[in-house]
Design a protein around this nucleic acid. Structure first.
Length: 717
DNA sequence: TGTGGGACTG
């Protein structure tokens, strides 16, 4: 038998159905006429329906569509089916077209509306779905228990909390709040909004619940990082005599993983095994993602890898993606890349996992290479870089100090019409802060307001940091005041900003306010206050704060703190005390610490201490230091000699640096003109009329000479 | 009409 599920009324004519089977849709017209002659409209509907369900090829579907229209058997029922089959093929526009060209008779009931709503929502066109719903109401069509889950879902993705409330009220007016599907969607909607209190209210009032109601509650708490409530729901479910199903277990698993309770995730996974719960690919993916962050990774990896093979999940795309991610996060980019290359089917997540792996390892160029490969994929592949791909490469360059390239990528992203999200904006803001490009920073601020991201803490902290680093303290202060839920990073950024701009007193006052507000300072806070003290020359305060950090807050001083203290004391001319810190600190001083000491020697023209410091530093320097930092110290020493007129020594140091193969990296600078950042370095001119530039420079120099008693600060070459 | 929950990426 070819068609075990043949329509009831046509069973007698199975050979006829065979002619119509989608793979054999060659001569259907005569047979359609044949059925029409039988005058059995219901049979025809059933028949078409059957064909629609079996359609596997788009051109068959189009042929069927045409025949349904000409055969005058159009009904809301059949059109709704057409819409949903088009949607299954991913042909939203065709689906919409069916709806828009439907006879008026078909629009009285909710049937066709619901199907087109479903097609719209399932392709992520939530705004359109809401517009469609408004149209439906204007036509006076009554929404039912199928309409509302879709409308609520659309709200969940588009709306703010107030829209969600309105729709909820609307549900209450219509009286559909006891419909289990509607209530389940409401729970999910509030969970997405971060309002589990509202979710719980809906859940609590439900007269009948199904598994989905319980599972949505568990995953809702998981989504909102409330592991304990998730367990509570799970236990209550068991208490009420319901056996948690696979989805419940997986949700609980992901709730542990999300909260960073890694060991417990593995324990729970073990418990699932003991209770005989089937291991699914989804559960394995969660466990794999946990493995990436686990210290005892290698032990766990082998076990999990065993499960992957035993369960035959090797070819599950998302399990493979999780594996790529695991290796990437462990810094094993080679293994990640091997896995990635072997994958026959890659989706956007696979690409992003690979790009992120390189980005996390700091390999921007490799990340960009994979990204470009993704961009160049030919037309029949559906994969295009999405916001995550863009954010990953932009962030990679941003965090490697290659801000100009990062900005360039951001402009390309805008041209590609990919909407930036909070992660992208935060990366770009950090670039603006680092390069102090205020105009671009302001533009991004506007962008954030338009995209209603200004209540996102990531973006708010980014803006605060950007304004402070650009020296716009008042605007920074305003952003800070506007943050509703200030976190430690907000406070640290404000303190750092004041410190950098020489406002030591403000930094210290902010520190006190922070304590007052009940925040516990961390090591970053102390780097901020200590460096604020050193920039403002607040020696005593600095000493006291260092002491408080150790005694009161039990924070172990890091390299950065020692570096600040050396700078603080050195700048104040207390060179002996500074060098004794360098001598006595519990770890080996790095180039920053030595540099701070050398710089203080330069400021106070103390060649003796400088020589001792430098010789000690150079003797300790091995390959562990990066070349740039070591080179910097050579140049510093050379300049110190030059400052005290010891030109021969100065030259000697430079030559010795050269013979060691250390090359000074040319200093680079940049300028922001018309929201574009131009980079240049010495010897590598801008594409401008240089004569004119030098003319202006000379003019400026002579004006400066005239206006002040020129202070001869020696430049660091 | 046949509605839903769980996974991997920044």
């Amino acid at each position: 038998m070819v068609h075990a599920t043949a329509p009831r009324r046509l069973i007698s004519n199975t050979s006829l159905l065979h002619h119509f089977s989608p793979s054999n849709l060659t001569r259907p017209f005569s047979t359609i006429t044949h059925i029409n002659n039988n005058n059995d409209n219901n049979a025809l509907l059933d028949f078409f329906d059957q064909l629609l369900q079996q359609c596997t090829r788009l051109h068959h579907l189009k042929q069927l569509h045409a025949r349904i229209i000409v055969s005058s058997s159009t009904s809301a029922f059949l059109l709704a089916r057409l819409v949903s089959v088009y949607a299954r093929f991913g042909r939203v526009f065709d689906a919409q077209n069916v709806f828009e060209t439907a006879p008026v008779d078909c629009l009285w009931s909710s049937l066709l509306w619901n199907s087109v709503l479903r097609a719209t929502v399932s392709t992520g066109r939530y705004q359109n779905a809401l517009k469609l719903y408004v149209k439906m109401r204007q036509r006076g069509v009554l929404a039912d228990g199928f309409t509302f889950p879709l409308v609520v879902r659309a709200c969940k993705f588009t709306g703010g909390f107030s829209l969600c409330k309105i729709v909820h009220n609307h549900v209450l007016q219509v009286g559909l709040q006891n419909n289990v599907h509607v209530a389940n969607e409401l729970i999910g909607m509030y969970a997405k909004m971060g309002r589990m209190d509202e979710s719980y209210k809906v859940f609590d009032k439900m007269p009948v619940r199904n598994f989905i109601s319980w599972n949505t509650m568990v995953s809702g708490y998981a989504l909102n990082y409330d592991c304990d409530s998730a367990i509570e729901v799970f236990q209550r479910m068991e208490f009420e005599g319901l056996e948690p199903n696979l989805v419940t277990w997986t949700s609980l698993l992901s709730s542990f993983a999300r909260c960073g309770r890694l060991e417990e995730t593995l324990e729970l996974f073990g418990m699932m095994r003991m209770r005989g719960i089937e291991v699914t690919a989804e559960a394995l993916a969660v466990v794999l993602s946990v493995c990436a962050d686990l210290v005892s990774f290698d032990k766990g990896r082998r076990v999990i890898h065993g499960y992957v093979i035993k369960g035959g999940f090797e070819n599950y795309l998302f399990v493979k993606n999780a594996l790529v991610c695991v290796y990437g996060k462990r810094g094993d980019v080679k293994e990640a890349h091997d896995l990635f290359s072997e994958m026959e089917d890659k989706n956007i997540v696979s690409w992003n996992a690979m790009i992120s792996s390189y980005a996390e390892a700091g390999l921007c160029d490799e990340a960009l290479a994979v990204f470009s490969q993704l961009e160049k994929l030919d037309g029949d592949s559906m994969e295009r870089p999405n916001v995550i791909s863009w954010s990953a490469v932009i962030g990679a360059f941003a965090s490697k100090g290659r801000g100009v390239e990062s900005l360039y990528l951001f402009r390309r992203m805008q041209l590609a019409k990919v909407m930036a999200n909070a992660v992208t904006i935060a990366s770009i803001l950090s670039v603006c802060a680092e390069l102090a490009v205020l105009n671009i920073g302001r533009e991004i601020h506007g962008h954030a307001i338009r995209a209603s991201m200004k209540n996102n803490i990531l973006v708010e902290n980014g803006l605060l940091n950007m304004y402070m680093k650009c020296g716009c303290l008042e605007e920074g202060r305003l952003v800070f005041e506007g943050i509703n839920n200030k976190d430690l990073i907000s406070w640290n950024s404000k303190i750092t900003g004041y410190g950098m701009n020489g406002l030591g007193e403000n930094a210290l006052a902010t520190f006190d306010q922070m304590i007052e507000a009940g925040f516990k300072p961390d090591w970053v806070t102390f780097v901020a206050v200590l460096s604020a003290c050193s920039h403002a020359g607040l020696v005593e305060e600095g000493r006291r704060l260092f002491d408080r950090m150790v005694r009161e807050y039990r924070i172990e001083p890091r390299m950065e703190h020692y570096s600040c203290m050396v700078d603080l004391l050195g700048r104040a001319g207390l060179l002996q005390e500074a060098s004794s810190i360098v001598k006595n600190m519990p770890m080996e001083p790095n180039a920053c610490v030595w540099g701070a000491l050398l710089n203080s020697c330069r400021m106070h023209k103390n060649t003796d201490v400088a020589e001792r410091t430098a010789s000690e530093f150079f003797s300790l320097t091995t390959e562990r230091e990066t070349e740039t930092e070591t080179t910097g110290s050579y140049m510093l020493l050379s300049n110190i000699y030059a400052a005290s007129g010891r030109w021969e020594d100065s030259a000697r140091v430079r030559i010795s640096a050269k013979t060691k193969g250390l090359k000074k990296v040319a200093g680079q600078s940049w300028i922001e003109v018309k929201k574009k950042v131009h980079m240049f370095s010495s010897g590598n001119g801008l594409q401008l009329d240089l004569k004119e530039v030098y003319g202006i420079l000379e003019e400026l120099t002579s004006q400066i000479m005239k206006s002040e008693d020129c202070v001869h600060e020696n430049d660091i070459v």
